[in-house]
Design a protein around this nucleic acid. Structure first.
Lengths: 153, 153
DNA sequence: TGAAATAGTACTATAATAGTCTTGTATTAT
DNA sequence: ATAATACAAGACTATTATAGTACTATTTCA
């Protein structure tokens, strides 16, 4: 299985929770309880998301966190990149930092991994937080070209 | 970064190497040398690929490995699934085994992860070994909008 | 000024992974 | 037949990455 860290899972749940009430400021302890993780863990994830610019934070006694953008403008690729680093499958071939392969410079596989990483990245960028935050009563349609059953690379 | 194991990287290189000369039988030590990994490691990967049905094996003094299908009929999703298990991003929400979440049964995130995993799976299933095995003499063109230095998310 | 909440960093226990080794089985050449 | 070669399968260990926690500093409001 292609793994993402558990922190990214938490982060997605947190972002989804905040998107459902995106105007108000939410304290960390409230978020932690809602999502079902310990407060220290929630703090860690929230800090990372805020540093990445996905959340705005307000300090002090009435502080808390808030989405920095509208849910329609935040994608799964943003969340994963914030918590996992650049979206890619291998060290060589991330979308944002192509290269750095310790093998022979003309490694034929490198280009391939970059293409594959881009395909995955595009797939993740096609899912917005707004789509995730609607309760899954009637399933959401993933945006895709008509008649395109498989993702074009 | 979304991580795949190093074994999957090796496996992809091995499959690509075999696809370039898909008629002949290739011994493990030959493959190991060509890809640049140790023989024990190559053996491990080859065994796994063979057990998954992606390779045919011939034992004995003139034995070796061979693609079980044509390169056009083997996709990255096959290779990753053989070496990493079912393609998915989290424990809950793999494409082939939806469910098994230890959280509340109506976890709203579960459905979302399943959708995201499917998008990634489709992307990987769209890349065939035949495409990967063409030598990158003239670099493959990565589709990107003009003037878009970074991938739009 | 004190209480409460976020910010940043560092540390440790746990878990997953990689890589190797050992033993066993099949095939072929001599 | 027999020995050499190559694949088969599983176990074991060192390494690495991750998760989770703790501690200190800074900001804000009553």
């Amino acid at each position: 299985m292609i793994k993402i860290g558990r922190m990214t899972d938490y982060g997605t749940q947190i972002m989804t929770y905040l998107a459902r009430d995106s105007e108000r400021l939410h304290a960390a302890h409230e978020i932690a309880q809602a999502v079902g993780v310990s407060l220290p863990t929630a703090n860690k994830v929230l800090k990372t998301l805020a540093r990445a610019g996905l959340l705005e934070s307000q300090r002090g006694i009435k502080g808390g966190y808030l989405l920095s953008r509208m849910p329609e403008q935040i994608t799964m690729a943003d969340i994963i990149r914030a918590l996992e680093g650049p979206v890619g499958l291998t060290d060589c071939g991330t979308v944002q930092q192509p290269g750095n392969c310790n093998r022979q410079p003309s490694c034929s596989v490198k280009t391939n991994w970059q293409r594959i990483s881009k395909a995955v990245n595009d797939a993740l960028a096609g899912v917005t937080l707004a789509e995730l935050s609607v309760p899954p009563v009637h399933p959401v349609h993933i945006t895709r070209q008509p008649g395109q059953s498989r993702v074009q690379l």
